[in-house]
Write a protein that binds this DNA or RNA. Structure first.
Lengths: 226, 226
DNA sequence: GCGACGCAGATCGTATATGATTTGATACAT
DNA sequence: ATGTATCAAATCATATACGATCTGCGTCGC
């Protein structure tokens, strides 16, 4: 979706290549939280020198995906429960607003596509396919917020999702009860947008939908499956 | 406030030094929008090699303060009216929420300090001192949002202000009428917080206060001083 | 006169080499 | 046995050198 990493790499500097490559590895779970990123090691693997790799890692640090200490090294950010809460809180905020800004410019086709994606999500619940459900969930929300006319905001939304995907194997997990609720809220949100609902109402609906997922996680933390 | 740049520079890498140095130059207006940043030139001035300077510039690019093109060079971001709108919109959002999250943990001393700062701002209006007014405005808002317990959100707020300060000489300007309104809204916001107002109410008050400044700017754009 | 070609300067991009810092292990003294 | 000093390996940090790319200008052919 965002970048195919191996297809359209023409014109990119090696530093940018390394940046995307490492980010993909973090997103797909090859480098899980806590994994140590050694400059020389990655440089050899990508067949480049250490300088561009260093630059890539510093950029990832700025994005919050890795931590870095002078003369020590870098490692994929350890995203504990607190970090998860902060990230979800921020993402709920910016995505909610982005969705509200995007709502007025969404056409019927796009909304119809969102409904189809949501229907697929419901199917995933029937067949118990959490992986597809998670993938489709991003697809659903993307369909809405990608139309946001404010590029800064959109960038923040992307970064938020990027962080979340980095920890999908460590903390985040599929909560069946919440998932059903989620699908229903998607429908409600689409209805609200289609009816040309008040922007603030759309914003809060989108925000609270995401915060609901956070709450479900927190409730699950307190009382692990008995 | 954020960094003194020349005082506590111990333990920082040269790349970090360059990063802060360039950022300060952008913030204080030495490098105004459009200014061309030449690697070798800056490297000579700071008496370091080009590599750390390059890293610093790439980080500034990621922050949105400079634009960068392969084999061409970097320049301080040209922040036109559209960019200003997007930045203000995003900042209003994140700062509003950060303020709402911070509100419950503000103590009486802090609120009292905010009131004093606001009183000083009113004085600046009487003596027509736009520069101090602008400085105090940041100080006022910092007093409130710095207590925000979500570090990601706080970082976004800082970045927003950083961007704004970068263009203070090009677009942003002091609008006397709006400034009076601003002081009044500050008081209303403090009252709301002190009364333990509903978080959403605090958020929207803080947000709309900032958006009001944006609106004043837009109105001024359409109808320049007659 | 006008457009295409090509050269020179400027600037970025990266590889290589060297220095600085940290870490961990080992040996020694108490 | 424990604590400390010392050394070697690993790793980051940066300077230097060289290569790649772009820009602007001058020249040549038409």
């Amino acid at each position: 979706m965002t970048v195919s990493t191996d297809s359209a790499t023409v014109g990119l500097s090696k530093a940018q290549l390394a940046h995307q490559w490492i980010r993909s590895r973090i997103s797909d779970g090859t480098f899980s939280p806590g994994y140590r990123l050694v400059l020389g090691q990655i440089a050899r693997e990508l067949d480049v020198s250490a300088v561009p790799v260093r630059e890539a890692i510093r950029l990832l640090e700025a994005e919050g995906l890795v931590t870095f200490e002078r003369n020590i090294g870098a490692q994929v950010a350890m995203l504990d429960a607190t970090e998860y809460v902060h990230t979800m809180q921020t993402l709920s905020l910016v995505e909610g607003y982005a969705t509200a800004l995007a709502a007025p410019v969404l056409n019927a086709d796009t909304l119809e596509r969102a409904r189809r994606i949501n229907a697929e999500m419901a199917d995933c619940l029937d067949h118990f396919d959490p992986a597809s459900f998670t993938r489709l969930n991003l697809e659903f929300h993307s369909t809405l917020f990608e139309a946001c006319p404010n590029p800064h905001l959109l960038d923040l939304v992307h970064r938020g999702w990027s962080r979340l995907s980095a920890l999908r194997d460590s903390i985040f997990s599929f909560v069946p009860g919440r998932a059903h609720e989620s699908v229903a809220e998607h429908t409600a949100l689409l209805d609200l947008i289609e009816d040309g609902g008040d922007p603030l109402q759309v914003e809060l609906a989108a925000r609270n939908h995401r915060l609901g997922t956070l709450d479900a996680f927190l409730a699950r933390q307190k009382a692990p499956s008995p």
